[in-house]
Design a protein around this nucleic acid. Structure first.
Length: 279
DNA sequence: TATTCGTGGCA
DNA sequence: TTGCCAAGAAT
């Protein structure tokens, strides 16, 4: 849940999930549709499916206990290098190097003298993180957590609070005179993209208690008016979501592509002329 | 290595 | 208001 998502937004959903599905087997017993609905608006709904798939593997192949072994964690769906290390360290107290976006930024500034870490995780960054981490097992837990917190609360991406920084005097970026980033991070586009259309379609599918005619999902506002004449009107809340979807400035081929993407990712299923969340 | 994939708060 | 960006993973 925390992958690319702020902690404060995750907390309430996380509590709901643990309350509803206390063990991996409980989550595995739920349907993908239930899981995606419970995911709500956390974003990147594929993560919900992968978490469900991971729970299924854990229930079936790991005795319903989250594996402590780093390699076994890494084998689970949706678990990559960061999450495997984070679970091994923070849940089981093991000695692994955690490299998340906060830690990368702290290292870039404090030790490399750069404003931002490189675009994608490099071998050099991993090497640096490994070298910096203390050898002791308990110290490694404190270290990973501390550097992460420093990045999240003080050494932030925008407007870092250098006045409050405990290692201000040792910072290579400060010493270098706070140089600008050596590249321009290109922001994630949104308006007019497939993700925007996918998001609007997912909102419809999450809200609809019944399967939705695919035509309603793929049309624009003009087409919707024509369809309304020969189609039963969905309930109000679903209609509100459909209105948002129809109002997007997306050509028919983009809507089709977005829907097919959802089907391919297992987030939507199509039966005949109707679409719904996957059973 | 570079892209793709949601959502919402905040500057 | 617009753009940035957040405990990344898969391909």
């Amino acid at each position: 849940m925390l992958q690319q998502t702020p902690v404060v937004r995750v907390l309430p959903i996380w509590r709901e999930w643990l309350d509803r599905w206390p063990t991996p087997a409980d989550l595995a017993a739920a349907s993908p549709a239930e899981v995606v609905r419970a995911w709500g608006r956390l974003g990147y709904p594929r993560r919900a499916l992968r978490l469900h798939a991971a729970a299924t593997e854990i229930a079936e192949n790991h005795g319903n206990r989250v594996p402590e072994d780093h390699a076994e964690l890494l084998d689970l769906p949706g678990i990559g290098s960061y999450t495997a290390a984070a679970v091994a360290v923070f849940a089981f107290g093991q000695h692994y190097t955690v490299v998340d976006t906060n830690i990368r930024r702290v290292h870039a500034r404090l030790f490399s003298g750069k404003a931002l870490p490189s675009k994608s995780l490099t071998a050099a960054e991993t090497r640096l993180a490994d070298q910096l981490m203390p050898e002791g097992r308990e110290d490694s837990v404190k270290w990973n957590q501390s550097v992460m917190e420093l990045g999240a609360l003080v050494c932030t991406a925008r407007a870092p609070k250098c006045d409050d920084c405990p290692v201000f005097d040792q910072c290579a970026w400060i010493a270098a005179g706070r140089p600008e980033p050596d590249y321009v991070p290109k922001g994630q586009s949104w308006h007019g993209t497939d993700r925007q259309v996918r998001g609007a379609m997912m909102a419809v599918l999450r809200h609809s208690p019944a399967p939705i005619p695919v035509d309603l999902l793929l049309t624009d506002r003009a087409g919707a008016e024509q369809l309304a004449a020969r189609m039963e009107r969905p309930e109000q809340e679903t209609t509100d979501m459909l209105e948002k979807l129809w109002s997007l400035p997306a050509p028919p081929e983009q809507r089709e592509r977005a829907f097919q993407g959802l089907v391919r990712d297992g987030l939507a299923s199509r039966q005949g002329d109707e679409a719904s969340l996957p059973g």
